[in-house]
Each structure stands twice: as structure tokens, then as C-alpha cells.
Design a protein around this nucleic acid. Structure first.
Length: 489
RNA sequence: GGUCGUUUGGCCGAGGGGCUAGGCACAGGUCUGCAAAACCUGCUACUCCGGUUCAAAUCCGGAAGCGACCUCCA
């Protein structure tokens, strides 16, 4: 590959040169949603982050298999409803089949992702469809001696694993040894031998409606089993990149590593990537804090914290304007800035078509935009830097459209190419104003603006202003320029 | 309490020893019948206290604020 891509690896806490295990191919696994509720901003961030990673890896020539799972079983609730998983709980509340609930929210998740222009992954495996693989994984870990059966459930033996490998806590920076040394044996009431042990298979309580037979009990797989089992099944073991939100580092990903090492003797992947979280007015977003905003609420503006609706591309642009490893703080002001900023880029892109090329080439610097964008992407996917370069290009375009700067046809083609490649193909932005009837709208607008131009030349200001104001009321902005009027909406 | 991270202009946010992004907002100007858009100009910032250095927002130490994780979470 000609691009030297640096990726920040959570495991080493530094940027590393990316080298795939197999030349020209990349296997990437990203933790997907638990489908028991509507998607929110927190789901959009990893989806968009890894969508860009997916797009970029493909762009620079890799054949990528991108696996993003759907969690539709397991994930115990840890409150009063001990032993009941999220899907089952929601199902009981809504009087639906568990799979009906999972399907409903899966469909809604897909719809939201499509609006955000997030490409579908190569494979989207469901946990419920891989119970056999998960049971096999649990058996492997048992056979290796790193798990024990307790009252029909199977637990991972963290203490033994740690004694043999000293790897538990490696990813999250947690020091487990001290905890192990000071923790006494749990009393007989507890199924686990050590408080840090985690479930590989959980026996279902009688009221638990999602259950599968296994050698140990009728139950369901533990919290971390699906990613280990499905990642290995579709990407092999080890594979290249494993991604997810930072909040999953511990215990989820730490446990995934333990499961993989215990069952195969090696780590599941080479590079761990984690996107940071989104805060709202400096606060973590959470249902209990009352600042929980779903994606649909953003799209429609139907939440009391929102002063207006924000389009999917505004959300996407907003997220890409921050680096994926930084927290990003939501506010109406910030989203409005993103909305206007993106509109400015789109307008500049369209204005490029109106620039009259000059014979002589402008400056050689225009040809450097592309490389600077690659440099930014190669530096751990620095999307904010790419965007800043595009804004600089936009300034040149507008200046040229004003006749204040000269661009040769080659310059124009190059700048257009950079926008096509980076803004649309890699950052995955798209023009939201372009509907299916663009040609018709364009034609109609030409008619209307012609009439207005005639009115203007007759100094018939009431008519020309009425046309402008009426269009404005419909959300169409008329912009008068030297060579006639243009519009945007 | 433990671990990790972060603190940049009115706001959002890059950068990361000397060259000091970008966007939004705001102010002035050019253009224009007016407005909008566009362009030009202005607003030049890095939590605090020490230290290293010819030179620190950037490195080191400490403090404070904030955040994440510590068996729900993206």
C-alpha cells in the first residue's frame, strides 16, 4: 500500500504503523448495538467513526471485511431484575416476542444508519444466530481449564488466567493482581469463586423467556462471548482491527481478550481502536440524566433540549469535526455551526461548476490539497484536519467564483477531485438537498429566476422581492451574483 | 477511593518546543435597488503553580476543574 497509515492502538497506547496480517486484506470487527431501544447519538459515533475507517481502508486499496454484530441476546440487567436480559425485559413490558422486539429495533437502527450515510458492514451477525459457536467457545475454555461450572452457569476463572498469563488488565490498564491478593474467598452463597469472574454461560431463571439448551443448563450466553465467537468465525483468529466505544474497554474487550487467549493461546486481534464518548452540555448522556436524545429526535427536532431539527448530515459532519478519540460536546450552538459549515462546503463545491477557468494555472499549492488530506487521514484518521483543508479549498473556490483568483481547468478538476474523494467518498458526506427531482426543480427554478431577472431589469422591485421572499418562506435562498442569481435550499 | 484521560479565543474544535489550523458568532469594509451570499479586514487563545530549555500552549513535576471506566451503556 502506498499510504503509510498510523492507527492509535489502545493496547500500546500509541500510534502504530498499520500492517495487515494478510497483504492487501483487512478484517475489522466493531461492537454493534444492543437492539432493545432506539439509536441515539452515542450509537452514531462509533458507527460513523468506523464507517470512515472502513471507507478509508477500502479507498487506499485494501479489501476489507467489516463485521459489526447485532446483540439480541444476553447482556444481563444488573438491577432489580436479576437474571433477566435486556431484550427479554423489554419484550415482557411490551408484550411482544423477544425476536419481534429485536427485529423492530434492528430495523430502526438500520434506517437511522442509512440516513447517516453509514455503509452497511460486510457481515452483520446476530448473537442469537450463533449460540452454537458460543457454546463451543465456552467448552473450549472449560477444556483449557480456565472456566468452571457452578449451579448450571459457567464462569471464567480470572484468577487462574491471571496466574498463568498475567494479561488480565493489559488493555484497560487495570491492576488486577492486587485485587486478587487481597480478595478473600467469596462465601458459599455466591456462584462465582472470585468477584472478578465473569459469566460465559448463564442458567436461565424460570421466568426468563430467551433461553437455549446447552451442556450445562437451559440458558443464554455470557456478556462477552458473542464477539469472541463471531469475530473468530468470520475474520479468523487473530484478525486485524477490533473497534468499539471507549466504555467497552473494560470489562467487555478485556474479557474478550481473556476468552480468546484462554481458548486459543493468542490475542484476538492486533489493533484495538476506541472512539470517545459524546457529552451533552458537558455531561454524559444517559437516560437517568434526562439528556438522552435519540437520533430520530435529532432528525425531527422533537426533544426539549433541541432548538431545531438537525439533519443526518449535520450530525455526521458535527461528529467528524472532532477527532474520534476526543470527547465531543453536544450543544445547539455547536450543531448549528456544523450545519452552516457543511452548507458552506456544499455551496463552494457547487460554485466550482461556475468558475470560469483561466488559461494559466494558478498556483501549485492546489495540487497539494490532496496530499495534505491523505496525510491527515494517515495520521490516525484526523478527520477534523481534512475538513479544515476542505474549508481552505472552499475559500479559494469562492474567491475564484468572485473573479478574484485564477484557476486553470486543471486546478478546478483537481479541487473537484479532492472534494469527491475526501468529502463524499471517505468522510461519507452527501448532498441532502439533492432529491430525485433535481432536474425538475432546477428547471422550475430557472423559470422563476428568469422572471425575477426580468422584473429586476425593469426595476420592478415589488415583484422581484415577492419572488425572493416567497421562495425564502419555502426554504429556498436566492443569491444574486454578478452573473445572475443562484439558489440553494 | 482506584485506574486512565482531558483542560486551547464569545462558542465548537485541530495542532503539539521556535513558523501560532479551521468552522460558528461578532464588528468594519467591498459588491448590490435593498437583503442574502461571496470576498477583504479585525477579534491571536492555550487552567494554575513550579521546573527543563536560548526558546514551552507544546516536555517534566505538582495543584485544581472536568470526564470516562471500576460487573447497564457507544
Amino acid at each position: 500500500m502506498e499510504q503509510q497509515l498510523l492507527i492509535y492502538n489502545t493496547l500500546s497506547r500509541q500510534k502504530e504503523l498499520f500492517r495487515p496480517l494478510t497483504e492487501g486484506r483487512v478484517g475489522m470487527y466493531v461492537c454493534g448495538p444492543t437492539v432493545y431501544g432506539d439509536g441515539h447519538l452515542g450509537h452514531a459515533r462509533p458507527a460513523i467513526t468506523f464507517d470512515v475507517v472502513f471507507r478509508y481502508l477500502r479507498h487506499i486499496g485494501y479489501k476489507v471485511r467489516y463485521v459489526r454484530n447485532i446483540t439480541d441476546v444476553g447482556h444481563l440487567e444488573h438491577d432489580a431484575d436479576e437474571g433477566e436480559d435486556k431484550i427479554a425485559k423489554k419484550a415482557r413490558l411490551e408484550q411482544l416476542e423477544p425476536m419481534e422486539v429485536a427485529q423492530y429495533y434492528t430495523n430502526r437502527y438500520h434506517a437511522a444508519m442509512e440516513r447517516l450515510n453509514v455503509l452497511p458492514p460486510s457481515i452483520e451477525p446476530h448473537a442469537s444466530g450463533h449460540i452454537m459457536e458460543q457454546i463451543a467457545l465456552v467448552q473450549q475454555i472449560l477444556d483449557a481449564g480456565y472456566a468452571y461450572v457452578s449451579n448450571g452457569s459457567v464462569y471464567f476463572d480470572v484468577r487462574k488466567y491471571q496466574e498463568d498469563t498475567h494479561k488480565y488488565g493489559q488493555l484497560s490498564g487495570r491492576v488486577i493482581d492486587e485485587m486478587l491478593a487481597t480478595t478473600r474467598e467469596l462465601d458459599g452463597q455466591e456462584e462465582k469463586r472470585f468477584s472478578g469472574d465473569f459469566a460465559l454461560w448463564k442458567k436461565a431463571a424460570p421466568e426468563h423467556i430467551m433461553r437455549w439448551p446447552s451442556p450445562w443448563s437451559d440458558g443464554f450466553p455470557g456478556w462477552h462471548a458473542e464477539c469472541t465467537a463471531m469475530g473468530a468465525k468470520y475474520l479468523g483468529s487473530p484478525f486485524d482491527i477490533h473497534g468499539g466505544g471507549m466504555d467497552l474497554v473494560f470489562p467487555h474487550h478485556e474479557s474478550e481478550i481473556a476468552q480468546c487467549v484462554a481458548s486459543t493461546g493468542h490475542a484476538p486481534c492486533r489493533y484495538w481502536m476506541h472512539n470517545n464518548m459524546i457529552t451533552i452540555n458537558g455531561q454524559k448522556m444517559g437516560k437517568s440524566l434526562g439528556n438522552f436524545i435519540t437520533l430520530d429526535e435529532f432528525f425531527t427536532g422533537s426533544h426539549k433540549l433541541l432548538s431545531q431539527a438537525y439533519s443526518p448530515m449535520t450530525i455526521r459532519f458535527f461528529i467528524l469535526q472532532a477527532h474520534y478519540r476526543s470527547t465531543v460536546d453536544f450543544s445547539n450552538e455547536a450543531l448549528q455551526a456544523a450545519e452552516k459549515g457543511f452548507a458552506k462546503l456544499m455551496e463552494a463545491y457547487k460554485a466550482l461548476g461556475r468558475v470560469q477557468p483561466s488559461g494559466n494555472s494558478g498556483h501549485s499549492e492546489y495540487s497539494e490539497f490532496r496530499q495534505r488530506c491523505y496525510d491527515a487521514m494517515n495520521d490516525d484518521f484526523a478527520t477534523p484536519t481534512v475538513i479544515s483543508h476542505l474549508f481552505e479549498a472552499a475559500k479559494i473556490i469562492n474567491s475564484a467564483a468572485d473573479g478574484k483568483q485564477k484557476l486553470s481547468q486543471a486546478d478546478i478538476d483537481e479541487i473537484k477531485g479532492v472534494f469527491d474523494t475526501f468529502l463524499f467518498d471517505i468522510l461519507g458526506m452527501k448532498d441532502e438537498s439533492a432529491g430525485d427531482n433535481t432536474a425538475l426543480v432546477d428547471g422550475l427554478m430557472k423559470v422563476i429566476l428568469d422572471i425575477r431577472a426580468t422584473a429586476k431589469s425593469n426595476k420592478d422591485w415589488p415583484t422581484s422581492d415577492k419572488i425572493r421572499d416567497s421562495l425564502n418562506a419555502l426554504g429556498v435562498t436566492v443569491k444574486d451574483g454578478k452573473d445572475g442569481a443562484t439558489y440553494s435550499y
